[in-house]
Simulated scan of single mutants.
Amino acid sequence: MVVWVPGGPNFVIEISSASNPASAEKLVFARDVGAFPLWVRFGKGGIETIDGVMVLDIRDTVRGVCEAGA
C-alpha cells in the first residue's frame, strides 16, 4: 500500500505473513526514493532487518488472538 501525502512524507506499507525477498526489495526501493517504508509482519518465520525500513512485528498478537478464538 502506498500513502501519498501532498507536501508531506510518503509511506509505503507492506503487510505480509512471511519474509518475502520481493517485499524487501520494494521496501528498499521506497526507502531509496525518500518514502517511509513500513513492513507489518503477522505470520511465521524470521524477520529480516533492513537499514532504514521500520518493521512492525505483530506475530505474537495475531497468534494470541487466534488461540483465544480457538
Rank of each mutant, 00 (worst) to 15 (best):
V62D: 00
M54C: 03
V2P: 05
I58H: 06
R63W: 08
F36T: 10
N20R: 15
F36V: 11
S17L: 13
A70Y: 12
I50T: 13
A30F: 05
V2I: 11
V55C: 03
R41W: 07
E67F: 08
I13L: 05
V65I: 14
S23Y: 10
F42M: 13
F29I: 06
V5D: 02
V33P: 03
I50A: 02
G69A: 15
E67L: 10
A68Y: 10
G64F: 14
E48N: 07
S19W: 09
A68W: 09
D60G: 05
F36E: 00
T49V: 04
T61G: 09
I50L: 15
R41G: 06
S17Q: 13
I13S: 00
V53R: 11
D60F: 11
M1S: 10
A18W: 10
V40L: 11
A70V: 13
P21E: 01
C66A: 12
S17V: 11
S16K: 09
F42G: 06
A24Q: 00
V53H: 14
I47S: 07
D32T: 01
V28F: 00
S16V: 04
S17D: 13
P6D: 08
D57Y: 06
R59T: 02
G69K: 15
D60R: 14
W4V: 12
D57S: 03
T61N: 11
A18N: 04
G8W: 12
I13D: 00
F29T: 09
L27W: 04
S17I: 02
R63I: 05
F11K: 05
N10K: 10
S19R: 11
G69P: 02
G43L: 04
F42Y: 15
G34E: 00
P21V: 04
M1D: 08
G52F: 14
I47T: 05
S23F: 07
S19P: 02
L56T: 08
A30T: 03
R41E: 07
G64Y: 15
N10M: 09
N20T: 12
M54R: 10
S16Q: 10
I50F: 08
V2Q: 07
L27H: 07
I50K: 07
T61S: 12
A22M: 08
M1W: 09
P37A: 04
I47D: 00
G43D: 02
A68I: 06
E48W: 10
A70D: 09
C66S: 00
R63M: 09
L27V: 09
V5T: 14
G8H: 12
I50M: 14
E25S: 14
V65C: 02
M54N: 05
S16E: 01
A24N: 00
L38D: 01
G8D: 12
V40A: 05
W39E: 02
D32S: 05
R59V: 02
E25A: 14
P37E: 01
V5F: 04
E14N: 00
K44C: 01
D32W: 05
I58A: 08
A18R: 13
P9E: 10
M54A: 12
P9W: 07
E14F: 02
L27S: 04
V5H: 13
F36G: 00
N20Q: 13
I15S: 07
G69L: 15
W4G: 00
F36Q: 04
E14Q: 12
L56D: 13
D60E: 15
V53M: 13
P6G: 03
W4Y: 07
P9G: 08
I15G: 07
